[in-house]
Amino acid sequence: MPQQSKSTAQAQAETALLAAEALLQPWASHINKPQPDDKTLARGENPLVFPYSRRRIKLTGHGRPDVLDISLQPAELLEVVQTLMDANWGYLITITGVDLGPEAGEIEVLYHLAQGAAVVTLSVKVGRETETAVIPSICSIIPSASFFERELSEMLGITVQNTPNSDRLFLPDDWPADVYPLRKEFVAGSATAVDAQNT
């Protein structure tokens, strides 16, 4: 019984990932498929490693991972999300923004979608400047993304185009504009409140 439930969940995840991969065929070149890691295989372990960043990913069972990673251009994002949603593949867990730092000059935005144990992560990189830190809103496809997009824009200073509501969600009203707490250069406690009446 215990083994059965594990294998069912894993089998479902594998089916779901195969389905996702089939759906994402048009963008197949962007998919970061994991490769077996020779070094650890030799030690009898079996983690898979992404070739492009040597990311290690979690395995639910043996052989196949439970995640699929795909790097996209901001312009392609809506189409991919639409494809997945049209096929009724999974649901949006959240949107994560990761500041890669001033040297890299990029912010990575990750859209995590899940179906069962399978997680598809859409990775979109945008710039750090006001003009380049722009990403399209997916709220027209997934309305529940609104909160996530609000959080993303207030924490990292990314402009989300066409989002239904760009007001602050968590930060106080007297939080200074142009200070984004999750940027690497921000030091906790350094911001001072501004009079919200004047902003």
């Binding site: 106080p172 009203d173 007297d174 707490p181 999750l182 911001a191 409140a193 919200a196």
Partner: peptide
């Protein structure tokens, strides 16, 4: 949360008008 703000001065208050507008826009 993400960051701690060392608050100074008066805390922001929304005017009625702004609140109303917020709701309408939303």
């Amino acid at each position: 949360g993400v960051s701690i703000c060392s608050s100074q001065g008066e805390h922001g208050r929304w005017t009625w008008e702004r609140l109303r507008q917020f709701g309408i826009d939303y």
